[in-house]
Design a protein around this nucleic acid. Structure first.
Lengths: 131, 131
DNA sequence: CTTGGTCTACGAAAGGTTTAGAAGGTCGCG
DNA sequence: CGCGACCTTCTAAACCTTTCGTAGACCAAG
């Protein structure tokens, strides 16, 4: 059975848990739950269910260690960031990344510092292959 | 009563319809449905329901013209692009736009052309205050 | 061996999304 | 007037997401 709706995007809660797992590198349900916002008050079984779903969907791998399951990301955060950007670019920006960046740098809430950081990035990226 | 889950993001189908409406500027259900991918085969009443929901949520405005409702975006595409980027930046990039752009320009699928377009954008934006 | 703690798996409930049929209004034309 | 065409509104079904309780497995300590 395949996903039928989205390509391979995480739902809100799934992303919350993957973020915790990425920062951890790996761990059991209790470790992961400890990284979730404390005011969340999520039941342990809820967390376990989320992790099982992530496993089913292939976003994490699990290995039995003693009596508990240890989870590890099956997809790096970088890779997922790229995937999300591609999705957003396709859905909302006509697959033209330049428009996406334009909207980003037009955002008044963006600091000068951030802008310069971004240009430095681009200079580095374009400097190499420049002819 | 307000939305309870997301800030103010469109669902998949809602985005599909808003995209049609943005490209149209405004129109009735039949106009909008004509802009949706033709292999979609969506019933007219389904389209009407989506538009009513968008109206309820405040994403469009409607005015009665004769016997039909004419819809217009209550939110520009630019504004929604900005909103989406802010959301993605907060959820997945720790609110550091530079990281977002880094992931974007690291994407091997990005053409040299796009990269240069992006840098030109930044130069224009930063050129003023350059030292 | 039995009890208690910890774990995973299953199932259900509540809410949101997507689709579409049924019902009822309105308008123009014969 | 009455009919058909077209429109909106209501309602429901199917599915997905999120949350959690219950049940069953397993192990260690008394």
């Amino acid at each position: 059975m395949r996903r039928k709706k989205q390509n391979d995007l995480l739902t809100d809660v799934e992303l919350e848990f993957m973020t915790a797992l990425w920062s951890l590198g790996g761990g059991g349900v209790r470790d992961i739950l400890a990284r979730i916002a404390p005011d969340r008050n999520l039941a342990y079984t809820s967390a376990a269910t989320i992790m099982r779903i992530l496993d089913d969907k292939g976003f994490v791998t699990s290995t039995k260690e003693g009596k508990q399951l240890i989870y590890a990301p099956a997809l790096s955060k970088d890779a997922y960031q790229t995937r999300s950007l591609q999705n957003l670019s396709a859905k909302l920006f006509d697959n033209t990344p330049a428009t996406l960046v334009a909207r980003l740098v037009d955002d008044a809430g963006l600091s000068q510092e951030s802008l310069e950081e971004i240009r430095a990035l681009l200079d580095r990226r374009l400097g190499d292959a420049d002819d």
